[in-house]
């Protein structure tokens, strides 16, 4: 995988972003920035706006009001951003063909596909799976393939929407290992999770969302040792945040 200098996509800055559908407000004046460094983990209960925030930051949804900039620019095609959805769709092709499709969409020359595909399969632990139909893989394997497909874009920022939801511990560990490897290569990872343990294991920075607002945005160590808000204290104490 090519290492790229963190020059154009970061920081991603959301300034007073509001997003709603009809009368329902999903993001309510979010101001945040995602900077180069360790993974940022979005946590919060269902409906807190994590998925929508990821989609807005990815550029898939335009806010109703407010502003999003990538590296200081408001209009930039998402060539160096990638996202893995909570339930990624597998193209009805083989594992290898799924990755090749992503490489082709990213404008990578065909002559590089073989080497890049092998490299990505190795990175996500799917070496030897290339000829299998993607939709026949297990949930964890599909998530890893989705990660490989996202990484085929050689992104600078990788958004992951609950990447280990409903996976068993072994599959979760496999995904977390890939995330750590990816973060170690200098790719900014922003992921959402319900899993408190996962947030502890992966986060460099925590963003706690509740009812479409940012409740707390702090380094992970501080969040878990000295939460500043009641909601964060409740969350860290394992209480239900309704």
């Amino acid at each position: 995988m090519t290492m790229r200098a963190p020059d154009s996509e970061l920081p991603i800055v959301l300034d007073a972003v509001r997003y709603g559908v009809g009368r329902l407000t999903i993001l309510d004046g979010i101001s945040l920035s995602f900077n180069p460094g360790a993974p940022t983990v979005l946590i919060g209960p269902n409906g807190s706006g994590k998925t929508t925030l990821l989609r807005v930051a990815m550029g898939l949804l335009a806010p109703n009001s407010g502003r999003v900039t990538w590296g200081g620019r408001a209009q930039i095609s998402p060539e160096r951003r990638a996202i893995v959805f909570q339930r990624p769709a597998m193209l009805r092709r083989t594992v290898e063909a799924n990755i090749e499709y992503a490489l082709s969409s990213a404008g990578i020359a065909r002559s590089e596909w073989r080497a890049r595909t092998d490299e990505l399969l190795k990175l996500v632990g799917l070496t030897g799976f290339g000829g299998r139909p993607a939709r026949r893989l297990s949930g964890g394997e599909q998530q890893r393939l989705a990660l490989a497909r996202a990484l085929a874009r050689d992104p600078q920022v990788l958004f992951l929407d609950e990447p280990t939801a409903s996976l068993d511990p072994a599959a979760t560990k496999a995904i977390e290992d890939v995330i750590q490897a990816v973060a170690g290569r200098g790719i900014k990872v922003v992921l959402s999770t319900h899993d408190f343990g996962e947030a502890r294991r992966l986060a460099g920075e925590i963003v706690l969302l509740h009812r479409g607002r940012v409740i707390e945005c702090t380094p992970a160590v501080e969040f878990f040792t000295e939460p500043k808000t009641n909601e964060a204290r409740q969350f860290v104490a394992g209480e239900l945040l309704l």
């Binding site: 898939l60 095609s77 060539e79 959805f85 990624p88 769709a89 193209l91 992503a102 969409s105 497909r149």
Partner: peptide
């Protein structure tokens, strides 16, 4: 597929072909 198409920045003609 539509979310994946959007995420991979796939153009309209390629979407139909896919």
């Amino acid at each position: 597929y539509r979310d994946e198409f959007a995420a991979m920045n796939v153009g309209p003609l390629r979407r139909i072909a896919t």
